[in-house]
């Protein structure tokens, strides 16, 4: 990436961040992201039952939270630009498609990052209440949470590029993310799958949520890194292809 590309990406990034915080989306996302999981966490997560200073239950819920929250954040990424006609503006500026995509992606990831950072008081409080925390595990959990978010963002960006309608974009993203998330749980819980090792293996490998298990245990496995980064790049690529094809349509 040369200097010009960097500044282009940065300009798009700044514009996107501004847009997140000028509309209520950014705030609503961060507040709900904090509020809802915490309620679930304290009432149903059973941190005190386990009597164990760990965020594992919290992070175990994260894929499900992402299913709703990330499409909410990203549904407008391309759909709104198309709807408002600003896509024409953006694409006739001297910007590469990937500069626009990366700028948008990093801005969305930043919002998720802020929301994740805002959850830090939970481990800190539990640290004082229940004793020492495994910092290594915590770092691994946050890294995993960000990588997993990248993947969810990449998929919902791609879906947003397919339609002009915000609601369609949201519903389609949620459904597809839910599918990719739950096949992992199915592999473990449905008897049919658990008996067939190879199917179970495939489902586990392609599921968005199962790759997070190691991270939440505090283990950073290269397979999981490759999976999340690879999936993100794959959907970025598809996204660019869709945007390019619009020029031919």
């Amino acid at each position: 990436m040369d200097k010009r590309s960097f500044f282009n990406t940065l300009a798009v990034y700044k514009k996107e961040i501004q847009n997140y915080f000028y509309s209520p989306i950014g705030y609503v996302f961060i507040v709900l992201f904090l509020f809802i999981p915490n309620i679930l966490f304290f009432f149903f997560g059973g941190i005190f039952k386990e009597n164990n200073a760990t965020m594992r239950m919290y992070f175990a819920m994260l894929p499900i939270i992402y299913i709703i929250f990330i499409p909410g954040l990203t549904m407008g990424t391309w759909s709104k630009e198309k709807n408002d006609g600003t896509l024409e503006l953006l694409f006739t500026l001297p910007l590469n498609r990937y500069e626009i995509l990366i700028g948008k992606f990093l801005s969305t990831l930043t919002i998720v990052f802020i929301a994740l950072i805002a959850t830090l008081p939970i481990p800190l409080i539990t640290h004082f209440l229940l004793g020492s925390f495994d910092i290594g595990q915590l770092i691994s959990q946050y890294i995993g949470a960000l990588l997993m978010a990248s993947c969810y963002i990449a998929i919902s960006f791609f879906i947003s590029s397919l339609t002009k309608e915000l609601i369609v974009s949201f519903l389609l993203s949620t459904s597809i993310l839910a599918l990719f998330t739950f096949i992992g749980y199915l592999a473990y819980s449905v008897k049919f799958f658990t008996q067939l090792e190879w199917i179970k293996g495939i489902l586990t490998e392609i599921s968005l949520s199962t790759h997070f298990l190691n991270f939440s245990k505090g283990v950073i496995d290269s397979i999981d890194l490759v999976y999340y980064i690879g999936m993100s790049i794959l959907f970025f690529y598809l996204n660019i292809r869709v945007l390019e094809s619009k020029r031919w349509s």
Partner: peptide
């Protein structure tokens, strides 16, 4: 090229100055 599309699409959430700033940055 400076291109003004029909219906002048713009980022409505931005202020005039912010928008012009964004365009200036992208224009290098």
């Amino acid at each position: 090229i400076g291109y003004l599309p029909e219906h002048t699409p713009q980022y409505g959430d931005m202020t005039t100055i912010e928008y012009l700033n964004f365009i200036s940055e992208v224009r290098g």
